[in-house]
Design a protein around this nucleic acid. Structure first.
Lengths: 294, 294
DNA sequence: CCTAAGGTTTAGAAAAACTAATACCACAGG
DNA sequence: CCTGTGGTATTAGTTTTTCTAAACCTTAGG
């Protein structure tokens, strides 16, 4: 029992709908003979006549009616999801930490959309790093001291992070240029990197003040804005808040932090341009050229 | 925007189900390269990747999952009606009058089924003649004085009908060989052909007795069996009832009745054997050869 | 009887699909 | 680090399918 030729079904529904091979052939940009042949082929595969041939055109048999019914709805369903899927074409997912999302990415997103109107970027902000390899249409931006290298992915250090201490301009008891010792006496706000603890445990031995811990830099920054204390965070994440007067930079770590901003994206056998658009844009935002990496 | 190649979808669902192009190629009796090419073609048509290529096999992307979902159910629907339709292959519809159905056809149907087990005959018994032309898988058997000839159909007189009067053997007041005059004194049963009326109005002028009219010969015959009177019907329809002792023939019209049994079936450009099987069988039942008519 | 409309058939041309062979790639094991 | 294994991708060449063009057939209507 031979399988139905599914492409012939498309010819069949056209002929069924129009009640004429000639009209169907016009609609499908085929010769009339081609339609005739394909219907004949279908009828042969089914062992059943689908059309009664009449003097002026054709009409469906009982079998033809049933087939037309289900094929029309089935092909309709397929076409519908196909057109839905086609819209995924330029959809790129960017996995980032919440702080990168809120403090770096979100303000720059409108610019990206204007530059790349045909790329549909969706942001996944999560505290944990992605547990699986990246798909062809995904990339990831993280910050930290190191990042495991995965086969099939490539990574680039975008910048080394500079750590700064920030607080609200309205926070009382803070002079214009306080010493580190003065700062440590204030309520200390930190994220999972526990940078105050490292600083205190390393250079200075006494944990003097209360401290407030968050699992994300962006929450720490928002706490600082709300006058809860002094946050120690990468300067990258507070540039905008400082510029807007919501935060004041009261200290800068002169040592290299050893923390970096990473961009990770899949190696591509065949270039996937929407992804590369995103990669290029992020590089450009840090003044880099992608060069031979792609 | 190019149309989806529907045949490729069949390859796609196999690959999606098995999670491997290689296994799909085995299932479909194709080379591995062929599967790869067809998936690639689909991905090109959609502008979206359907599979992530992984170290051991492939896995569906988000787009792929959605497509697989709907395509699997849609193709399932199509296959289901296709296999239903395939069973119509040998289905022939025979349009007859109720009397032919009950008194001639039904008793002979088991014999036909035994001779032609591959032909699925379905009977449409109706008092009115079919108002439309016959389809390629239909034929019609009627009786009457004439029958309109239709283009694209052929007709054959199977026999000229012989009219007889019959009544129940248990009907009182009927001698072994009653005269027509004696018969006309009994309750007269007739169908739409109104043969008693014609006989009375023609040869004999006085409508003597009560009469019972039905719209079908078979009802008239059943009334006669139930001792309601004397029915005048084609002998063809009462042969079995006479043989079984349910009826007695008490009179026979010596004049030619001018009524015939007709077989009508469509002219065929290409032979449709299941139909021809039926045509040949009916002819044979009347001792005819189909000869050059087909 | 002639014509127009529309389906069928045919040979040959064009396009699509398939195969077989090879290249490529990621992982696993020594 | 090398190498084998289990897969996918690619390519050239062949086979199969599909298409077109043109002739033919049937029927309805003037």
């Amino acid at each position: 029992m031979k399988n139905l030729n599914l492409n012939s079904l498309r010819v069949f529904v056209a002929a069924a709908r129009l009640g004429s091979f000639l009209k169907a052939s016009a609609e499908l940009h085929l010769s009339q003979g081609a339609v005739s042949q394909r219907i004949k082929q279908l009828e042969l595969e089914l062992g059943v006549r689908l059309f009664e041939r009449e003097a002026r055109g054709v009409s469906l048999t009982k079998a033809g009616k049933e087939l037309a019914q289900t094929v029309e709805t089935s092909l309709g369903m397929i076409e519908k999801t196909a057109s839905k899927i086609r819209r995924y074409e330029n959809e790129i997912t960017l996995h980032v930490s919440p702080s990168i999302a809120r403090k770096w990415l979100t303000p720059r997103l409108p610019k990206f959309s204007k530059l790349n109107p045909n790329v549909q970027l969706s942001i996944e902000a999560r505290a944990e790093v992605l547990a699986r390899p990246l798909h062809h249409n995904e990339l990831s931006m993280r910050h930290g001291t190191s990042f495991p290298s995965v086969k099939g992915e490539q990574m680039r250090h975008l910048i080394e992070l500079e750590l700064v201490a920030v607080c609200s301009p309205n926070l009382p008891c803070v002079g214009p240029r306080p010493s580190l010792k003065q700062i440590l006496a204030l309520p200390l706000i930190q994220d999972t990197h526990r940078r105050w603890d490292k600083l205190v445990g390393g250079t200075y031995s006494s944990a003097t003040s209360e401290s407030l811990n968050f699992n994300s830099a962006s929450l720490a920054i928002d706490a600082a804005i709300n006058m809860q204390g002094v946050a120690i965070v990468p300067s990258l994440f507070v540039q905008d808040d400082i510029a807007a007067g919501r935060l004041r930079k009261i200290w800068r770590d002169k040592e290299p932090s050893g923390e970096y901003l990473f961009l990770i994206w899949p190696k591509q056998q065949i270039a996937f341009e929407p992804l590369n658009d995103v990669v290029r844009w992020i590089h450009a935002e840090f003044g880099h050229d992608v060069g031979t990496l792609m």
